[in-house]
Design a protein around this nucleic acid. Structure first.
Lengths: 227, 227
DNA sequence: ATTCGTTCTTGATGTCGATCAACCAGATCC
DNA sequence: GGATCTGGTTGATCGACATCAAGAACGAAT
């Protein structure tokens, strides 16, 4: 679920959810879509569904009383959003672009846990790895400079959805600058300036506002830990 | 496990671990102690044990290549540290003061999960609530000012371990200023200055360096969200 | 009590990123 | 085409917190 993940949890491991949930929850799950900008759930809503992202990207966020926003995660295909320890969602969730979803009933998951201890262990493993990814993001928010934050963010996307083209690695940046800013604890101006700086230094190209070509991966990696 | 938690997970809920683990893991768990400053485990070590804090406080942290540190959590009595999704710890863990622990073998927990679906559900609930607490801390690190951070931190400790005395609420601050700084993404100087400011404003008293008396709880609460 | 070492506090100065403000590029509409 | 709107860029200035530096408070050892 967290873009901060170095690898997609479900994509590259044996715990890809559909496979395990299928048996018990298929009859209780359904497919759905959401248009760009659509709010899937709000903080405080009854947490009845667990959403599995099939296509597109969603963002989860929390608001402060005065409107300040922190984006908690970007959900990419293979990710889960909407897990709750009580019966309420603790964040908002919106579609960043058009998304395709698989919607699982919470109760069906609970049933699976009881009938299949293996499933429980894997869900637990998923949760623990979420915790781990979030811990990485703690360092990001608490101790990294603006350049390091942006470089780290681009690297995470590169590792997760980058496609090699010639000698470059390319990917879309579906979220707007203010989403990135609220994810990294910065302002849109700082995001813009930092991206410009990376472009001027020849580390990346920005053919379109929402498209990134990384020309110098080692350079970007160095900036992520050093600048 | 996270001081960011408004209430102790195990303290106030039905999922206090010893009760549930007892049956299956008692024979595999043992009691232990660690002195102030002792390192319980390092990032990268084999994650064989899950530690339950019985007395005292521990800190988990991650280091950046150049020594910058982020404290991920302070573990108070009732908390668990050392859960891992693979077989390795992903943070360091040290005793902030002398601590008493109960040490559970990872394998015993796994066995319990298989034999007791209820246990699995509760452990999962615990993990999900960890995620939730961490999300709160994201806002803290990404979007709050120094004053808001310190006030929020003190409030969390107050809610968790505060003892009413006369018209004040009192608690120990077992960690040093640099621990607080690395937890909140600030410097020791800023922590010190902010505490001094709170003292000068009559919100708190600092009878000793590691002791806090909160004189004006609503005032502190206001600062946590407003300043 | 004296010394030493560590941690904390306080002050002076610096800097990174925020804020304020103007402009620009696309998209949509007529 | 021009008008308008939204999101992104760029520049000038400001301020919150970091950094650098000196001292104070406290405990431990002698």
């Amino acid at each position: 679920m967290y873009v901060t993940s170095p690898i997609g949890i479900f994509e590259h491991s044996e715990i890809r959810l559909p496979h395990f949930v299928e048996a018990e929850t298929a009859k209780h799950s359904h497919f759905s879509t959401a248009e760009a900008g659509h709010r899937m759930f709000c903080e405080g809503d009854d947490a009845i569904y667990i959403y599995e992202i099939l296509e597109g990207v969603v963002r989860t966020s929390k608001l402060l009383f005065d409107g300040r926003r922190q984006i908690l995660s970007f959900g990419y295909p293979g990710d889960l959003v909407g897990l709750s320890h009580d019966c309420f969602y603790h964040s908002d969730c919106e579609a960043v672009c058009d998304v395709k979803l698989r919607v699982h009933h919470k109760n069906a998951c609970h049933a699976s846990i009881e009938s299949e201890p293996e499933f429980a262990k894997k869900l637990l493993k998923f949760a623990a790895s979420e915790v781990n990814n979030m811990q990485e993001h703690f360092i990001m928010l608490g101790r990294k400079s603006a350049t390091e934050k942006v470089a780290s963010f681009l690297l995470t996307l590169l590792d997760r959805v980058g496609e090699p083209k010639n000698c470059k690695t390319c990917f879309d940046l579906p979220m707007c600058r203010s989403d990135i800013a609220d994810f990294l604890g910065l302002t849109i101006e700082t995001i813009s300036r930092t991206l410009t700086k990376l472009r001027e230094d020849g580390v990346i190209e920005l053919p379109k506002k929402h498209r990134v070509h990384v020309c110098n991966v080692p350079g970007l990696r160095a900036l992520a830990e050093r600048a």
